[in-house]
Amino acid sequence: MASTTTRRIATVLRVPLGTVHYHFEHKQQLFEAISDTFCATGKEWVAAHVTAGMGLTAAAGAMARAFSPWVARTPADQLTEFELGIWALRTAPAVYAKL
């Protein structure tokens, strides 16, 4: 994560570097967007197993049962999210001191 640069990201994605910087001021914003995407996907998956009026206990159980298969189906996403989280914990003081 630390060695990732917006230039390398643009190269891998085969887009102009300016395109990356047009959408993201710095790689922290890009990493946050990636994390938000993973979270949204997980929420959608879990929410599909909950229905209005099912009650809190039943909803919590349905969410727990839905979450595990989703994690098992998306191991690369889970690893990426974990690495993003660890990177954020390590760099947060330095990143937020600059803002």
Rank of each mutant, 00 (worst) to 15 (best):
M63C: 15
R8D: 06
E83Y: 04
W45C: 10
Q29H: 08
R14D: 12
K43Q: 14
A48E: 04
G61P: 01
A58F: 03
M1P: 05
T5K: 00
V46E: 00
T91A: 14
H23C: 07
A64E: 09
K98T: 15
F82A: 14
G85H: 06
M1N: 07
P69I: 09
A52V: 10
A66Q: 00
W87F: 15
D36P: 04
E81P: 01
A97G: 13
V95C: 10
W70H: 06
S3N: 05
F31K: 04
S35Y: 08
P93F: 08
F67M: 03
D36V: 01
S3Q: 02
P69M: 01
H21A: 05
G55A: 02
A33L: 03
G42S: 05
A48Y: 02
W87P: 05
K27L: 08
I86S: 11
M54H: 02
A64S: 14
V12C: 12
T11M: 07
S3D: 07
A10V: 00
F24R: 03
L89G: 14
A60T: 08
P16S: 15
A92P: 12
E83G: 10
E83V: 09
C39P: 03
V50T: 06
S3I: 00
P93C: 09
A97Q: 13
V95Y: 06
V46N: 00
T41M: 09
